[in-house]
Structures are given as C-alpha cells and as structure tokens.
Design a protein around this nucleic acid. Sequence first.
RNA 1: GGGCCGUUAGCUCAGUAGGUAGAGCACCGGACUUUUAAUCCGGGUGUCGAAGGUUCGAUCCCUUCACGGCUCACCA
Length: 517
Amino acid sequence: MNDKDNSRIHNQDKLIQEKYEYYAETEEPPGEAKGIRLEKIRNLRARGIEIYGSRYEKNINISDIREKYCNLTQGEPAGQDYRVAGRVMIFRKHGKATFCDLKDSTGKIQLYVSLKNIGDKPYEEFSGLDIGDWIGVEGGVFVTRTGELSINVNSFELLSKAIRVLPEKWHGLKDKELRYRQRYLDFTVNPDVMEVFRTRIKAINALREFLNGRGFLEVETPMLQPIPGGAAARPFITHHNALDLELYLRIAPELYLKRLIIGGFEKVYELNRSFRNEGISHKHNPEFTMVEFYQAFCDYRDMMDLTEELIKFIASKTAGTMELSYRGKKICLDGRWKRYTMLGAIEKFGNIKIDFETGMEDLLGISGNLGIQVNRDSGKGKIINEIFESVVEPLLIQPTFIMDYPIEISPLAKKHPENENLTERFELFIGGEEIANAFSELIDPAEQLKRFRFQVKSSDEEERITGKIDTDFLKAMEYGMPPTGGEGIGIDRLVMILTDSNSIRDVILFPLLRPEE
RNA sequence: GGGCCGUUAGCUCAGUAGGUAGAGCACCGGACUUUUAAUCCGGGUGUCGAAGGUUCGAUCCCUUCACGGCUCACCA
C-alpha cells in the first residue's frame, strides 16, 4: 500500500468519524442497527473499500433479462454474462452460497452467489452487505432447481451503502404518514405505488399526444399573478422584493390563456399547477395539476365531443381498456356518454321538478328537506346547484355530462341563448367525481364586468380581500375575443379514477403535510 | 374548522382491570452450497407521541397539546 492509499484511507476514516458524530449529535439517537452499520462502514473503509461508489456500466435492465429468458429451462446455460445494477431487497443465506433479490427500476431478479464461483474474499465481502445496499453485479443467467430465473454472480461492486434499515419485507410500509413523508421508502418497498405514478405519467403523455395531435399549442403563463382570477378560491399570497409588489400564486391560468386567444392563438393548452389556499381533504391538495385548453370558434358542445374523445384516448393509453373499476364500482367509458341539463338531471335522478319559475320558498323548502344548509341571501341558481350536488352528483358513476349551469355560479361562461338564468356550461362526472368543467366562453367585456362586479358584491368578507377585478383582462377583451370553447380537467382526480385511488395524496408524489415538530 | 379514531422496537402489530412491556420480520452471534417470507440454535435493541394531573407507583386513568387517518364543511 503506497502513501497515496494510506492518506485516502485516513481521509475516509476522518470522514466517517465526522459522519458518525453527525448522526450521534444531530439526529435522533442512532438505533442499534444503524450504529452497527456505521461500525461496518468504518471497517470497510479501513480495508480500502469505497462504500459510496461512482458509475457502474450496466448493460441490461432486469425486465429485459426476464423477457429474453422467459423460456430458459433448468440446466440450460444462457451463455452470456450481463451487468445489472440495483438495490438488494432480501437475503437468503446458506453458508457457502447466498441467494438475494436485486431490484432495479424495471423489476426484481434473484442473484445466486456462491463462494466457489466468486472466491473467498469477495464472498466474505458480499456476506457483509445489507438489505438496502446498491450493488452492481456481473454474471450469467440460469434457472435454479426450483425454476427461478437467476443470475450466477461472477463479480460484484458495492455502489452505495444503506446505513438506515429498510421497512419490513412482508408487510411493507403501511403507515400512511410515513409513506407520504418518506415517499422514497414507499417506492422502494411497495411496488404498486410506482405503478400508480407510471400510470399518471402515461396519462399526461397521452393528454399531450392527443392535444398536440389536434393542433393545440402548449403554453406557459404566469404562476405569479398580481390579480388571481379564473376561479373562486382563496389564493396564496407572496411578495416580490425588488418591485415591492404583492403577488398571488395562480388559482387558475384561465384569464391568461384567454388573452392568448385574443392575441390570435387558435388552440392553446396549459398543463398547469395551480394553488388554492383552502382545506385539505382526500380530494384536495393545496397545489394540484389541471389542464386548461381553449379552442377559438367553438362552443361547449364541441368541447363535450372533444372531452369524450380525450378521456377515452387517455384510458386506452393507460388502462388499455374502456372498463374501469373505481371504489368497487364498474365504470364503462364505451359508447356515447349521457348528457343531461342540470334541471333535467334533478328531475330524472331526484324526481324533483324545479326551475327558475319555482318560488324561493319552495326552493328553500326542498333544500331544507334535503338537509342542505342554504344562505337565505343566496340566489335561486346557487340553491338549484346545491340541490343538484346533493341529489344527483353522487349518482353519476358512469361518465355523464351535466349541461347548462346557473349564471350566478358561472361568471366566465356565456349566457344561454334560451334562458337568461343559465349559461352554456357543462361539467363531466365520472365515478361521482367532477372531472371537467367547460363552457362557451363569455366574450362580451361589458357583460364580463357586470359578472365580475356581481361576484365581488356577493362574495364574503374573506373572498373580498382578493376580489379585485382584473381590468387588464377586460381591456384585452375589448379588443375583441373570438367565440371560444374552454375547459379545465383535474388531472389528479382523473388519475385517481384511472388508478382506483381513494385519496388525491396517493396520486401526488409529495403531498403537502405539516412539517414534523 | 367540526366529529370519530389512532400514535408501543427500524417495520407490521399485540399487551398491561395501574406494579416501567412482547411477537413476527429486520438486526447481532453461530450452523448450513439451489433458497423463495429459506431453515435451525442463541441474543430485545424501547423516552410505550409530548407536557401536566390523580396515585405509593402511570405506557395504561384524567386534562391539554402535537402529528396523522377517516369523515363532514369549503372548494376542483
């Protein structure tokens, strides 16, 4: 051993010494297992073994091995060596031979490591590995006596050492809080979780593929907005120092996308993260993903057709089928989806015949009987919507469009030509959940101003704090906005349905949690 | 924000009519060259979420708090 090696080991020793102190002093007291592993690291380093390695030239994925050798039989040599890399998940030690499972991003495969094959010293080193360590191995593929496709390891390399212990192999990590807080562990030990997010990624790719294929342009508009608009929600407030400016995280990209339509873009979309400073539930995360798309010269009926095609396309690219299972219920996306007006749906599903001619006292009586808390100052439209949500919404398991929403809850939608109390707006429901919201956009700036004013007037104290009217948007509209169909789809909710997830947190990689302590 | 439930070993969970705890996996020591949650022998590694209170004595009973889950409300 030369001086250079000596000083390297000395430096490593010093480093691990510091590390040991770091864990001892700044973290929770190291449990025995971690203490033992730290001790182990010290020993490995004293022997000149680097425990945090660098690159490893792997030449195949585990899933590719499985695919390539699915027909390999016992005793038949595969005849070629491969280099794979991954994380050690479990050991089955048998004295002078060891089986273990190696996991990479594509799958798991069994390793067979025998003293006879790799030699005394490497075998001893391999025996010192822990569950959770990352290693690279080189060896040939074969099938064991029990029929398990395996790699007969000729040599291995430690790529990175785990000094914390992975959760249990059999039950995995169940504690939801730990799963969300330490998502990396969730992925490591609960393989289904990665599938959920692979589906999410596929759905988003399919969405882009579909919209790009239809000539929509993907754009990016401000997330920091001086006036948050496009939805009714409380925003997050932030501040720009240099401009000394109060800014808000967007609650929707709507008003900026419409500016683009005014500017001459004909079809645009934004796959956006929006932020709403409101309650957290199994359906709500403070930041969430949606797509908004706008198409000039269209109305809400065109958007309905487009939506139906879009969702079917996404389902075919993710689930690969039109039959979904969600919360124990079968959902069938095939065929033409049902379309009802809101008032028609209330009559059909609730056997309640109401409209805007119905007297206020009657409406209050009906909502009262349904146990709905209604503010007496609310307009008829709001009460009708409450009745709809209570009576109809939970029943809309199969994909269903509900059309013609009351004007007072639809400030950005065009007035219905046949009923001034309604708008050309629809929502799509699947599995009892609202998935999409769309309308023929209101393009008359004078009417828009009137609606904004009504919103501000009828909003409560809290909403009024940020209930400023976006006059810059109105100005844009005054230059002339073409008739446009616009829509928003909640991506998280859609993915929940595609993956049969009960909570939005199960489809968001890092859902917001209160920090520990 | 309201209601209900939970928090015990690294993980999954038992438990104590109040006498400071236990099982599987993981871990440590030993045996074992084709296992599949390998097996066999030996070893509990813990501030029982936190702080008060009651008590001779609290992980257990009471109060408050923290965090989480489910649910209702608001919203998408």
